[in-house]
Every structure is written in structure tokens, then in C-alpha cells.
Design a protein around this nucleic acid. Structure first.
Lengths: 188, 188
DNA sequence: GTCTATAATAGGATAGAC
DNA sequence: GTCTATCCTATTATAGAC
């Protein structure tokens, strides 16, 4: 019995990288196999349900990353502005300064949406809810906080689409720079 | 020689509908064939370059639709606010109140991006430029106008992603409602 | 747990009849 | 201009050896 070449976590991380770039329909087993260095059969050993299982694992990985790197900082110590700054720094890492797509945004299209609509809803919903909670804590009324949190999510996703389409980091960078004003500035 | 069952324009319109929903990789010839009612061979008669040609035609169709329904109104008669209102009404139609995806946003992922990066750049760029011109006309400095136009595009795309992911029209509706304030209100 | 081999299907694309 | 038939490749998935 050969020992595993890499941890399951590392395998999933590479699957995640393929799905975010190629989308569900565009991610072929060949590419997933190449990216992980595992043969098809090894992939099916880890993921008996095939490609759908692999995408689900990628979503699990993202949820866990988001919880650890985005939601936890938002709930952590410091002023709302400090916590938000920690989150935006992590967003910048996650999306490689706007050069990498969002897995959720990629799975919204084609078969991915059909397979994962409920997961997408809950993942998007959790992020928006966490942002709204931060904004409420900063002294904004819940209704308005919810509106701002939704708009922040809209801008994150939209800037990734536009930066991808233009092949230009600008939109993502400017979006990141404007998040604090959008979420925490009272005069709006 | 059988007469054409439908005009080329109508064929392209149906191809457009498939690509926007399924993305480039997710749009199979079977589905494109079904959607148009044309057999594979007939599709290749219209589009000798195969699927890539079909997607290109869908992009042409979108560019033409955008020129006629979005850019022309922006340049037309009336105050900037009136022209913008005409454009947002057309946006609402194009995206079916937030229920249909954007072709450009769909083609940003997977193979579509590699094939059409330049087209995406110019289509996105033309829209942003037209919005910026309107904002300049309303009395805003060019640099600030460009910033607002880019943010409008970001919000359009982001709201479509979020409305798709949440399966909820809300984000798109609220985005549309906020466009005039974003673009034309001085106090920002 | 990984490999080689292979099945079974779907994909994109073409040829030629009418 | 559309059809039926076909080709070739890639795809997803499985079986079985080690």
C-alpha cells in the first residue's frame, strides 16, 4: 500500500484552484488529475461521487477558509474598522489581488448552479450576514446594515468579474479600498 | 433546398440565450442544437468555425443589442437623468429583472475567457466609457466620472452574480434603484 | 492508495444525400 | 439549408492488479 502523496487537504486545495478558474463544466477530470498529481482512480478513491463530490469538497474548503480567515477576524477583537481591515487583507490574499476568480461566482453558471444552488445561497448568505453584524456593531441600524453588507458582497463579486473581463486589477483594488467607507461611514 | 426555418438573427438570439445561461464550456452542441431547432450540420452551415463561432455570434448579438438599447439612449435626447432611466429600464429587460445572467460575466470563466479575453475587454470598456461620458455631461470631473462608471459596471455584474447565487431578485432590483444616485448625485 | 486498462458515453466536427 | 450517418476525440467512470 503506497502512502498518500499528499494530505487530503492539499488535494482539495488544488481541486479548489481548478474549479475557481475553470468553473464546474470547464473543469475536466484530466485537469483535476493533473493539478493534483493523482490518477483518475486515486481521485475516485478520495471522491467516490466523482466530479460533483470534488466540487463539493472545494466548496467545503472555501467555507472553512472563509470561516477561519474572514468570519473569525470579523468577530474578533478590536474596533469594527480594525476587524474589517483584517478581513480585507485576507480577501486580497484569497483573490490574489483580483487576479483569481471566486469559486462561488464561477459555480453560479452552468451545471454548477443546478447542482449547488442551495450551497451558494448559504455561503453567500453567511458572508453577508457576518458583514451586516459588523456594521450593526458599528452603530448602524439593522436594515441599513443589511443593505450595506449586500452591496459590499455585490461589489466584491462584481469587481472580480470586471477585473477578470478587463484583465486589470484596478476594479478589484479600488473596490477593496472603498469597502470601509461603504460599510462603516455614517454619512451615507 | 428547404427554406430557412428562422432568420439567422433569431438563431443567434437563441444561441445567446444558451451561452449566457450555461457559459462557454457548459454549452454543448446538443443543447445549442435543441435551442435553435437546427441539427448539428445546419449549425455548422451557419457557423463553420463551430462552437467558437457561435459564441462569437452571440457576443456580436450582445454588442449590437447594447449599442441599440443601452448606448444609443445614453447619447440620446433629454437630461442625463432621463437618459439613464431609459438605460436602466432596458437593463431590467436584458437581465429579466435579475433572473438571467450576463453573457460577458458567463464568458469570463473557463475556456470562454481564453478565447474572448479581448472581446470582453472591449465590450466592458465600451459600456464603462459610455456611462462615464454621461456622468461627465452631468457636470462631474472626468476622473470622478470614470470611477463612478466603473463602480456602476461592478454593481451590475455583482448584483447579477449575487441574485443568481441567492436565487433572489433583490440584489439586482436594489442595484438598479441605486444607479442614478451613484452616477449622477453630486454629494459623494 | 495508486496504477494500468478499459468501458461507456458525450463531446465537437465532417461527409454526402436530397 | 437541412438531414442522416459517421468519425474521432475527450470525457466520466469503473475494474482489477499490485
Amino acid at each position: 500500500m503506497p502512502a498518500p502523496l499528499m494530505s487530503r487537504d492539499e488535494v482539495v486545495e488544488r481541486l479548489f484552484a481548478v474549479f475557481r478558474q475553470r468553473g464546474y463544466d470547464g473543469a475536466s477530470l484530466s485537469e483535476l488529475s493533473q493539478a493534483t498529481g493523482l490518477g483518475r482512480s486515486s481521485l475516485y478513491h478520495y471522491f467516490p461521487g466523482g466530479k460533483e463530490d470534488m466540487a463539493r469538497a472545494a466548496l467545503d474548503y472555501l467555507d472553512s477558509w472563509v470561516e477561519g480567515h474572514l468570519l473569525a477576524p470579523l468577530r474578533g477583537a478590536g474596533t469594527p474598522a480594525e476587524r474589517l481591515a483584517r478581513m480585507t487583507a485576507e480577501l486580497d490574499r484569497l483573490y490574489d489581488h483580483g487576479r483569481s476568480a471566486c469559486l462561488l461566482g464561477a459555480l453560479v453558471h452552468g451545471e454548477g448552479r443546478h447542482l449547488f444552488q442551495e450551497r451558494l445561497r448559504s455561503s453567500f448568505g453567511a458572508l453577508v450576514a457576518a458583514l451586516a453584524a459588523l456594521v450593526v456593531e458599528s452603530g448602524v441600524a439593522p436594515t441599513e446594515a443589511q443593505r450595506r453588507a449586500e452591496e459590499a458582497m455585490v461589489r466584491i463579486q462584481g469587481s472580480l468579474v470586471l477585473s477578470g473581463g478587463l484583465d486589470d486589477d484596478g476594479p478589484f483594488r479600488r473596490m477593496l479600498a472603498g469597502l470601509e467607507t461603504l460599510l462603516l461611514d455614517a454619512g451615507r
